[in-house]
Simulated scan of single mutants.
Amino acid sequence: MSGTARCEGDWLDAVAWDANGLVAAIAQERGTGTVLMMAWMNREALRLTRETGHAVYWSRSRGRLWHKGESSGHQQVVHDIRLDCDGDVVLLEVEQRGGIACHTGRHSCFYRSLDESAGWRAVEPVLKDPDAIYSKG
């Protein structure tokens, strides 16, 4: 095995993949530190993210790779990839193209806040109607 191939496998082998071969991935906005979303990655998604410089995730519901922005156009350009101390969470520092990371049309998927009297309530605005983002017409 060549030195390059060995290096390629080593960094992926350092990840503590779960029983389904997945790792949690958090996308954090470069510059602001805002947590935009959490998704899952398999080995191929993480490898492609590193190779392309664009976030690629594993869609558990669709059972396939998901290139962030493939439907919406709201891509994530990856500036840094980090692994937590236990090796079971990946942190991506991203530039969020189009300013919308959430399929609800919001900047961040973490748009709900726990209110003691009302329960979960939306505290971030919808920036664009999801029907307009994902319309097939």
Rank of each mutant, 00 (worst) to 15 (best):
L127E: 05
D88S: 09
R43E: 09
S117V: 14
Q76N: 09
R60I: 08
I133Y: 03
V94Q: 02
A101W: 00
R47L: 08
W66R: 04
R30H: 14
N20R: 01
E70D: 15
T4Y: 15
A55H: 04
G3D: 13
A122I: 15
M37W: 02
W58E: 00
R97H: 06
S59I: 11
K136T: 13
S61D: 07
V123I: 10
S59V: 10
S108Q: 12
R62A: 05
G21E: 03
H107G: 00
D13F: 09
G31E: 06
N42G: 03
R121A: 04
T34F: 03
H74V: 00
H107V: 04
G53L: 09
W120Y: 14
S61E: 07
G87H: 12
N42V: 01
K136M: 10
S72A: 05
L83G: 05
V23E: 00
N42Q: 08
H54K: 06
R82P: 02
G119D: 11
A5L: 15
L12W: 09
Q75C: 13
H107W: 02
C7M: 10
V77S: 01
R82Q: 15
H74T: 02
V90L: 11
N42P: 11
D84H: 07
E93A: 09
P130E: 02
P125W: 08
E70I: 10
K68E: 03
G87N: 13
S117C: 11
M37H: 04
V126D: 01
R6M: 10
R82I: 13
N20G: 04
R121P: 02
R82D: 12
V23M: 00
T34R: 04
C102G: 10
L91K: 07
A55C: 14
G99P: 10
S71T: 11
S59F: 06
E116A: 15
D13C: 09
Q75T: 14
V94P: 01
R50V: 14
Y134C: 15
D115K: 04
H107S: 03
T32M: 08
D13V: 12
E116K: 11
A5H: 13
R50E: 15
R47Q: 11
R50A: 15
G137A: 15
V77G: 01
D86Q: 08
S2C: 13
A132K: 13
R62K: 12
M38E: 10
L46C: 01
A14P: 07
C109R: 06
M38C: 13
A16W: 10
D84G: 07
K128W: 05
T52N: 11
V23Q: 00
S71Y: 03
Y57H: 02
P130I: 04
S113A: 14
A101Y: 01
R121D: 01
E29F: 08
M1G: 15
R64D: 06
P125S: 11
G21S: 02
G137F: 12
E29P: 04
C7K: 10
G99N: 09
D86Y: 06
E44H: 05
K68N: 08
D10T: 14
E93C: 07
G119M: 12
I81Q: 01
A39M: 11
L46W: 00
E51C: 07
L127A: 05
V94T: 09
M38T: 13
V35R: 00
P130K: 02
C7L: 12
G69P: 12
R43N: 10
T52C: 07
R97M: 10
L91G: 05
D131C: 06
G21T: 03
S59G: 07
M37F: 06
S135F: 01
